[in-house]
């Protein structure tokens, strides 16, 4: 039986603002299936976003939804979660939102290991404003503000998250929607900060400019150019360097921020 997305969609809020061929819908659907898989109560779930294409997603889905200012989703979400740790809190953000203007909030949410699931809709570009380079635009690529090629180097979201202290870190792609769904579900059930680097595509403002082919071609690219971290072990270092690694990079058990704060409350009340 086909999955019933309607159960989680707000009636009358579609069509969405995303362009034809945009892969954000695949990430959104993966999030919805993950929520369903985990069995979250809609009333007890808060989805928070910042600004940008990806950040419009909360408006379409039927939860407590909070569309905030550019880059700040994790900072708002931290307030929500600490104010009521029994709520399930999910953040959705584009790569520019999460890692440029929101970079400081990103690393500090990871450092605190607060129980928030952060899904980065990583399409390597600022789409909403028309295709400016982002912190994950590869070196040399074209964007509306890198007409001669990008002089910057990109963040590796996985390395950044692990370095900052997130305790669940994975990378999936929109081609591999089922594993992506599983990663998001695991991120939600994981107690602590989870980051899912969801590689997706922007044919309109990134693909076209860099001659990456059709929307479908761009998604198929992930099939040939990514490899799971287990399978990658069988590749030579040269072969591996050509590929983007996907899968679960970290799943650690470490005390979670709100649980630690509860200990402080217990201690202070006893004092």
């Amino acid at each position: 039986m086909a999955f019933d997305y309607d159960k989680y969609m707000r009636p009358g809020k579609l069509p969405h603002i995303w362009c034809p061929g945009c892969a954000h819908g695949i990430v959104m659907k993966s999030i919805i299936r993950a929520i369903d898989r985990v069995g979250l109560d809609k009333d007890r779930t808060v989805i928070v976003s910042g600004i940008g294409c990806a950040s419009r997603m909360p408006g379409y889905v039927d939860f407590n939804t909070l569309h905030t200012t550019h880059g700040r989703s994790l900072a708002f979400a931290t307030g929500v979660k600490l104010a009521d740790p029994s709520l399930n809190v999910i953040c959705v953000a584009g790569d520019g939102d999460a890692l440029a203007i929101g970079g400081n909030h990103f690393i500090h949410a990871c450092r605190r290991n607060i129980d928030i699931t952060m899904v980065v809709f990583n399409n390597n570009i600022y789409g909403m404003t028309g295709g400016q380079f982002s912190p994950t635009t590869p070196h040399g690529k074209l964007a509306s503000t890198t007409p001669y090629g990008n002089p910057d180097y990109a963040f590796d979201v996985v390395e950044l998250s692990m370095g900052a202290g997130a305790t669940y870190v994975s990378r999936g792609t929109v081609y591999h929607a089922v594993p992506l769904e599983r990663q998001i579900a695991d991120g939600i059930t994981h107690k602590g900060m989870s980051v899912i680097d969801a590689l997706c595509t922007c044919p309109t403002t990134y693909g076209r400019r860099n001659k990456l082919g059709s929307a479908t071609d761009m998604i198929l690219w992930f099939k040939d150019n990514t490899v799971g971290i287990k399978a990658a072990e069988r590749l030579s270092p040269e072969e591996r360097a050509e590929k983007i690694l996907t899968g679960v990079f970290r799943q650690d058990i470490k005390p979670e921020y709100c649980e630690e704060y509860q200990k402080i409350i217990d201690m202070a009340k006893g004092a």
């Binding site: 708002f76 931290t78 104010a83 400081n104 500090h108």
Partner: peptide
Amino acid sequence: EDEIAAMASIIGASLV
């Protein structure tokens, strides 16, 4: 982590 986040966090908490 900064003043911006401090302001954001209190709005988040108030919504709860």
